[in-house]
Computed example of a mutant assay.
Amino acid sequence: MDERINIAIDGPAGAGKSTVARSVAEALGYIYIDTGAMYRAVTWSAREAGLNVEDDQAVTDLARELEITLAPGPDGQVVLLNGQDITDKIRSRDVNLHVSRVAANDAVRLLLVEMQRKLAADKGVVMDGRDIGSHVLPNAELKIYLTASVQERALRRFRESGDASGITLEQMEREIEERDRKDMERAISPLIRAEGAILLDSTGIPAGEVVSQIVTLGSKKLAEAKQDVI
Rank of each mutant, 00 (worst) to 15 (best):
Q171L: 04
G166C: 12
L142F: 09
L169T: 07
S23W: 04
V20G: 08
L111V: 11
A63T: 10
L191V: 00
I205N: 00
E160F: 12
L199G: 03
A21E: 02
E67M: 09
V102F: 10
N6K: 09
E152C: 14
I7D: 07
Q213M: 03
D201R: 06
K221D: 01
A207Y: 00
E175Q: 10
G83Q: 12
E48N: 13
S134K: 14
I90E: 07
L51D: 11
G73L: 08
V211Y: 08
H98I: 02
R153W: 11
S23G: 01
V229S: 05
G73P: 11
L222C: 07
D10H: 13
V24P: 05
D10E: 13
K17D: 07
K220R: 12
L222W: 04
G124R: 14
T147Q: 09
D75Y: 06
P206K: 09
L28P: 09
Y145L: 11
E3W: 03
H135Y: 13
P74H: 03
V136W: 03
G29E: 05
G14C: 11
R93Y: 08
S165P: 00
L66Q: 14
E152N: 12
G204N: 04
L222S: 05
R181C: 03
A197K: 00
I214L: 01
E209Y: 05
Q171M: 11
V99F: 05
Y30F: 14
S134W: 10
M184A: 06
N82A: 10
A25Y: 05
A46N: 02
S202M: 03
E195P: 00
V78N: 13
Q151F: 01
K226W: 02
I90F: 06
P206Q: 07
K143S: 04
L191M: 01
D128G: 13
L62H: 14
D85Y: 03
R91F: 11
D94N: 14
S165V: 12
A25K: 06
D2F: 01
V150T: 14
G124I: 14
R153C: 10
D163N: 08
D10P: 13
I144Y: 07
T19C: 12
L97R: 15
R193W: 01
R156S: 11
D122G: 07
A49T: 01
D34T: 07
A49Y: 00
V108E: 06
E54K: 13
M1T: 05
T87I: 12
S23T: 11
E175L: 15
V42H: 10
G83D: 10
L97Q: 15
A8C: 05
A103N: 10
A207M: 00
G76H: 09
I188M: 13
Y30T: 07
E26G: 04
R47K: 13
R157S: 04
Y30V: 07
R4K: 15
L142W: 08
I205P: 00
Y32S: 13
E26L: 09
V24L: 09
I68Y: 03
A37W: 08
R93N: 10
G50K: 05
G73V: 05
Q57S: 12
L62D: 15
A49S: 11
E141W: 06
L217W: 00
D75A: 12
V229Y: 01
G50E: 09
E48I: 01
V126K: 13
R109N: 11
I198P: 04
V53A: 06
L81R: 14
A225T: 01
G162P: 15
E173L: 12
S100F: 04
A8I: 02
I90Q: 05
T168A: 06
L222N: 02
